[in-house]
């Protein structure tokens, strides 16, 4: 017989680990990854590989030489950051800009706070916003999709995203009905045959990934439902009030980075609130800020800013919205 082990209860553990959670997210990202490779071809592969490699490298270097802790690169979190960062940039972004983005995401947004679990903001989003503000031209010239096996040999044609077209059109005083003619059909938007960042183009693929996460219970319904719900209700009210001035909710749902943000970035465990109530408020806040930026802001897209702003409020939400306690409310039905 071996030496007896002594430890406190419980003596059994669920078959669950950080690595499993993280790789679950990676699996959920695969459909969107495949779609992006299909539409943007080799460029998409290039951006993905470089972003992931740079993120892993920075994590390894910082963990080894600055934090001097055990290696953490195989827990999968840097892998997710790498993929998400790649998903948030256009496919024709120069290599060095991607590396800068990876450095900001991992080095500044994550490791400077102490690594996994300690970052207040979603690292990939910080990386993206940094790039968006520092390199606005490169970050907003989206290549038009040129599917992998298509025979079109056009080289690097760029164009705006549907949201960009909308914003420019409205600025020039055009009516919604006129602008909509210039925008790809809803079907194209759903599948992803539109201009945009790598991973955000296909609402369907992201939705599949999101449902997978929900089924595996890696994320809970509160944030996605509150986020999507508030976007639908807010834009719906505006649309009903004036359909010529404001575009319909469906358009808002399937364009831009909303689906990516809703399922993969707002639900980031580390930077979102912990109680159900807090998560609902968080989702509502994200939705409202997103719509406000999309409709009245200077940028055509507001998902990343909305999530980052709500990330900043997370500690407050954690403190203010405690889970429902057992025995807090005494209700006795004398039957």
């Amino acid at each position: 017989m071996n030496l007896l082990t002594v430890s406190g209860s419980p003596h059994i553990h669920e078959d669950n680990s950080v690595k499993k959670v993280m790789y679950g997210v990676v699996y959920a990202l695969i459909p969107a990854m495949l779609v992006s490779v299909y539409f943007f071809g080799f460029d998409a592969v290039r951006v993905l590989l470089i972003s992931v490699a740079a993120c892993l490298l920075f994590e390894w270097l910082i963990q080894k030489y600055l934090i001097k802790g055990p290696a953490t690169i195989n827990d999968g979190s840097a892998l997710i950051t790498g993929i998400l960062l790649a998903f948030n940039v256009p496919s024709n972004l120069p290599i060095w800009i991607i590396i800068v983005g990876a450095f900001v995401a991992i080095g500044i947004a994550k490791m400077s706070f102490g690594g996994l679990g300690k970052n207040p903001f979603n690292p990939a989003l910080v990386g993206r916003v940094f790039l968006l503000i520092s390199f606005p031209v490169q970050m907003t010239s989206w290549p038009v999709p040129k599917p992998l096996f298509s025979s079109v040999v056009t080289d690097a044609i760029t164009g705006p995203t549907p949201l960009g077209i909308l914003k420019d059109g409205l600025r020039d005083g055009e009516k919604i009905s006129d602008i909509m003619t210039q925008i790809p059909s809803y079907l194209q938007q759903l599948v992803g045959d539109i201009g945009g960042s790598l991973g955000e183009v296909s609402a369907i693929a992201l939705l599949i990934g999101g449902l997978y996460l929900l089924l595996r219970k890696i994320i809970t319904w509160q944030i996605p439902v509150a986020y999507l719900g508030s976007v639908i209700i807010f834009t719906g009210i505006l649309w009903l009030a004036n359909p010529e001035q404001f575009v319909n909710p469906l358009f808002h749902l399937i364009t831009g980075g909303l689906m990516l943000g809703v399922f993969f970035m707002a639900t980031d465990m580390v930077s979102s609130p912990m109680s159900s109530k807090g998560q609902i408020i968080f989702g509502l806040g994200c939705g409202i800020i997103t719509v406000v930026i999309r409709i009245w802001g200077a940028y055509p897209e507001g998902v990343s800013f909305a999530i980052l702003i709500m990330n900043a409020l997370t500690p407050l939400l954690n403190n203010s919205f405690k889970p429902k306690r057992f025995g807090e409310i005494v209700k006795i039905d004398h039957k």
Partner: peptide
């Protein structure tokens, strides 16, 4: 319990997944 069942899993950083909050039958954190 045999060796494998006896040892606890390796401790990692908290990822704030709120799993513990969701399963707490007393509604604590």
């Amino acid at each position: 319990f045999d060796e494998k069942e006896s040892k606890r899993v390796e401790e990692k950083a908290c990822i704030r997944c709120a799993g513990c909050i969701k399963v707490c039958p007393m509604g604590l954190e």
